[in-house]
Amino acid sequence: MSNREGRLRTVDLARVAGLSTQQVRNYEDAGVLPPAGRTDAGYRVFGERHRDALLTYRALQPGYGAVTATRVMRAVHDGDVAGALALVDAAHAALHEERVSLRAAGEALEALAGRDAAAPPDRSGDGPGEPDGRHGPHGPDGRHGPRGLRIGEVAALVGVRTSALRVWEEAGLLVPGRERGTGYRVYGPADVRDARVVRALRRSHHLFDHIRPVLDDLRRAGSSEALRTAVEARGRALTARTRSMLAGAAALHAYLE
């Protein structure tokens, strides 16, 4: 594969990773590879270092993506190892945030399945305000009439203060309808479901930014079972990506050494 003195031609390097010779040239131009030497005739001359760089880049791609992998290798070859490692750290931090959101979705599904039914009602709320025990025309038993439920009824069903429901609405987590004429909030079955999800996730100290995508996924999926399928698939994908990132980080460590 190599010629005299351990040198590698462009075609030799391309064969190592199953690439075209043009891709190898592009990688050198992008900084993925260290600068190549040149023969008297102007042909590129590569060595073992270039082969290692190419294999490291290829190992980084599955977990970190082509853009981040390119930036990491470019930083290394520019002598900015700390910057390269900062890019790796940022990618792992983003993956952690995805896992937090995934955990939130799992906890939301447990709440919808009624697994937290034994937990005592939480009336601490998420903001100041007095409990509103008034019931609308549908009574306190939780039955949804033609116009839905009023805020006091939903607060009693979910086990929070009405002020908490208002805070969640201001944060964009709940979007109840409004009654014509009076302007009173009207909650349908999906709104009550969303309120239960928010309560469960707030009890686990999840931030609004983690709760919002869970509700978006639930509304998009249309049912808790569809969301459960999506969550399980996402969990498998995150696990596979984590393993790919570990492999890529190991290759980068070996290259830096």
Rank of each mutant, 00 (worst) to 15 (best):
L256N: 05
D116C: 01
L227M: 14
H253L: 15
R115D: 05
L87E: 14
P146V: 13
A171L: 15
H92L: 14
G125A: 09
R9H: 11
F208K: 05
D52V: 10
A108H: 02
D217T: 04
G6S: 14
R234T: 08
H77G: 08
G18K: 04
E257P: 02
V160Y: 03
Y184D: 00
R4N: 13
H210D: 15
G47L: 00
A164W: 00
A195C: 10
A82Q: 09
A91F: 05
A90F: 05
L207Q: 15
D132M: 04
A226V: 02
R193S: 09
H77Y: 13
G142E: 12
T21Y: 06
A41C: 04
T39Y: 09
D52W: 09
L227E: 01
T70A: 11
L246P: 00
E169W: 03
A195R: 03
A117L: 12
R103F: 00
D52H: 11
R38D: 07
L256T: 04
D132Q: 06
D209Y: 04
G127N: 07
T68H: 03
D29H: 09
L112R: 03
R241S: 10
G183I: 09
D40N: 13
R180T: 04
V214S: 03
W168R: 01
L33C: 07
R203W: 06
T70L: 12
E170I: 01
Q61C: 12
E130R: 14
A155G: 03
A17L: 11
V24P: 00
R115H: 13
M1Y: 07
V100L: 11
R44M: 09
V197N: 07
A221Q: 07
R115M: 06
L33A: 05
T182Y: 09
A237L: 05
W168F: 08
D116I: 00
T162I: 05
G47K: 01
H50G: 04
A221D: 10
S101Y: 08
A200W: 02
P120I: 05
D191A: 10
T10M: 11
T229H: 08
R178N: 05
A94G: 06
A155L: 03
I151D: 03
A250S: 15
E110N: 11
Q61D: 11
E110F: 04
A84C: 08
A104Q: 00
A14E: 01
V231T: 10
G142M: 04
F46L: 08
E170V: 06
D209R: 15
G31P: 10
R38L: 12
D216A: 15
R219L: 13
L87A: 14
G47Q: 10
A195Q: 05
P35D: 10
R7T: 13
E170D: 15
D29C: 10
L54E: 02
Q61N: 07
L54H: 10
E5V: 08
E130G: 04
G42T: 12
V167F: 02
P131L: 11
L218I: 02
